[in-house]
């Protein structure tokens, strides 16, 4: 009888079979554990990172013997002593930290109006343009963008050529600290806008209208309504930009001209130039510790912002 086949199609049979297999593998009594099962890949990934950190911690306690280029079997804190006393490492750590703070502050200032306009504009065309402009840099990549700045800002770059038209001698616009900060701000801007936009979307437009109707000008509305409500976005964006800037490698390497290294560059040098993986591991651990302390401080002082997914104090 063909009617039976149409009453119970093949697709259904397959689904029944798959459900049967799923029930055999993961019985209904385990259902309460299903959300945890979904978490498993993420836990495994984090677990791998922790394993890596344990290995790095182990390496950080071993010193390099330059007569055999083997690491010591014994543990010592010699690498930590070097990292905390040698001027080079203190200089690059200070430079990384100051740059991270400056870049975070400047990026947030630039990102806010962009995100606000993107969220509030009544023009779908403008919103699309802003979105495309926001995502375009993601497709280019950090290294290519940094090299792009070399082309634009170099001695024979577009900017200096333009200055030459008004009889201004070529000037060194790259290979210095401001160039590194500039490159980092440009790199971080899309991240900050993306983190700020959801927080701004969550602010009802009616609140701003209400403030206006009660006599507040746009400055007061901005200071007393928009900014406080956007705080979760600022905190989320700030944390992301701060940690990414603190650990950046490519921008200081390319736009710094070799004399504006960050801690990440010093770590690379130890791993790949002097073959001292112990010291490199020590610097890496200290960078992780510094980043964690900074983020912990921000969370303690201001809450987790948008990163708390709506459960923040804000």
């Amino acid at each position: 009888m063909r009617a039976a086949r149409t009453a119970y199609p093949l697709k259904w049979r397959i689904m029944d079979a798959l459900e049967g297999v799923a029930a055999a593998i993961w019985p209904a009594r385990f259902r309460r554990a299903t959300p945890y099962l979904m978490l498993l890949p993420a836990v495994l990934l984090v677990g791998l990172l922790v394993l890596g950190l344990i290995q790095i911690a182990d390496a950080s306690l071993r010193t390099l013997d330059t007569t055999t280029f083997q690491f010591s079997d014994d543990y010592s804190i010699a690498n930590f002593q070097r990292a905390l006393t040698e001027p080079l490492f203190l200089v690059v750590a200070r430079r990384s930290l100051i740059a991270a703070l400056i870049v975070t502050a400047v990026t947030l200032v630039f990102a806010f109006p962009y995100a606000y306009l993107m969220v509030r504009t009544a023009s779908p065309r403008l919103r699309k343009f802003l979105l495309i402009a926001l995502f375009l840099p993601f497709f280019i990549g950090q290294v290519v963008r940094a090299y792009g700045w070399l082309i634009i800002l170099g001695n024979q770059g577009m900017v200096n050529e333009a200055l030459g038209l008004v009889v201004v001698a070529p000037m060194r616009l790259i290979y210095n600290y401001p160039a590194v900060l500039f490159g980092l701000v440009q790199y971080m801007l899309p991240f900050a806008v993306l983190m700020l936009a959801p927080a701004l979307t969550a602010i009802p437009e009616e609140l701003e209208a209400a403030a206006g109707s009660l006599g507040a000008n746009w400055v007061r509305t901005f200071i007393h309504v928009v900014l406080p409500l956007a705080r979760p976005g600022f905190i989320g964006a700030g944390v992301v930009v701060l940690t990414l800037s603190l650990t950046d490698f490519a921008v200081p390497a390319i736009l710094g001209g070799g004399s504006q290294d960050f801690t990440a560059n010093a770590i690379y040098d130890q791993f790949f130039r002097t073959s001292d993986q112990g010291l490199g591991a020590t610097l890496a651990l200290m960078l992780v510790a510094l980043g964690s302390i900074l983020v912990g401080l921000v969370f303690a002082l201001f809450g987790a912002g948008t990163l708390a997914m709506g459960r923040s104090r804000a």
């Binding site: 330059t66 080079l88 200089v91 690059v92 290294d261 010093a266 040098d269 073959s275």
Partner: peptide, 18 residues
């Protein structure tokens, strides 16, 4: 060179990065 490279390297970097 090999036995002292790391020290020379750090010293040069310390001067140039300072």
């Amino acid at each position: 060179q090999v036995e002292n490279e790391s020290e020379w390297f750090s010293k040069f970097k310390a001067i140039m990065q300072g």
